[in-house]
Design a protein around this nucleic acid. Structure first.
Ligand SMILES: [Mn+2]
Ligand SMILES: [Mn+2]
Ligand SMILES: [Zn+2]
Ligand SMILES: [Zn+2]
Lengths: 146, 146
DNA sequence: TAGTCGTTTAGAATGATTCAAAATCTCAAT
DNA sequence: ATTGAGATTTTGAATCATTCTAAACGACTA
């Protein structure tokens, strides 16, 4: 069902883990593969169920562990909406999120860097930004919900 | 310790509640007063403890109820950061939030409307935005932490 | 006074996430 | 090959913010 990682993807995974002194494991590889296979910002539980198809004995705690590891080494971003379950995103480019309130689906929105620059300008001088999060909530009119 | 609502504030409260067919109660008034008294984006528990000073019998469930009511009638915004407790903000002007990672404190950042306009332009044509949330994470260099 | 309806309250339930401890795995050193 | 150390995975319990339930309360009206 789910393709393996290609050479480049496996390399990203290896590098990111190595940088923080950690190794590729079968579980980490499958969890990362699940994230790349369908970039729909799945929850932990969704990742867990998708990964189970490939690795039946996998535990939910391990999925939590793997995702936490990936976030820690910068491979994956967490995406939160209010108090709903945390979702995970392997898109490393700076981007915003659009949450469709009728479906709950989260879409990536490309973010021109000029906007990020402008945003940092609205801050008082002594505020040093590490990250900026931008999220839209609304509806999509599209007939074909992709 | 905590001032009463002034005429204008009480009027906002009354109007917002009336619009959705609800009434001012002593509990709602105190909870709203607490929010206005210190605009530091308190959690439910913080609101609860502050309100207890004025109304010793108040229950935590009621604070949850009041805040939910206020959010429902547009008097107050929820502010979430990752999976931490929800915080509450009575600032109705469009604004962003800056979260100081060394203190956990959340500051309001005035948001020029031109930036909001620009942001809606980066969306695909069939995405209709209802709300936009912008939040900064970082540190403040200021000696006098206000 | 009795009834209705919204609100408040206490306490139980929920559910995503985290924690603790035992089991398993990896791999280097013997 | 065997052993031991350290990392990882697993299971099941614990946490805790929030939501739910049902009973009590209050204001208002008939
Ligand atoms: Mn499940
Ligand atoms: Mn407390
Ligand atoms: Zn994303
Ligand atoms: Zn605010």
């Amino acid at each position: 069902m789910i393709q393996n990682l290609n050479k480049h993807e496996r390399e990203s995974l290896h590098e990111a883990l190595a940088k923080s002194g950690q190794k590729i494991t079968p579980q980490r590889e499958i969890v990362y593969t699940v994230l790349l296979a369908q970039r729909d910002h799945p929850t932990v539980d969704e990742v867990y169920h998708r990964a189970l198809e490939t690795m039946p004995g996998l535990s939910l705690a391990t999925v939590y562990n793997c995702l936490e590891t990936f976030v820690g080494c910068g491979l994956v971003r967490q995406v939160n909406h209010e108090r709903e379950s945390t979702r995970y995103c392997p898109n490393l480019a700076p981007h915003a999120h659009f949450r469709d309130e009728s479906t709950g689906r989260v879409h990536d929105i490309e973010l021109p860097k000029e906007i990020l620059e402008q945003l940092t300008k609205i801050l008082p001088a002594d505020f040093e930004t590490e990250t900026i999060e931008i999220s839209f909530q609304g509806r999509t009119k599209s007939s074909t919900q992709n």
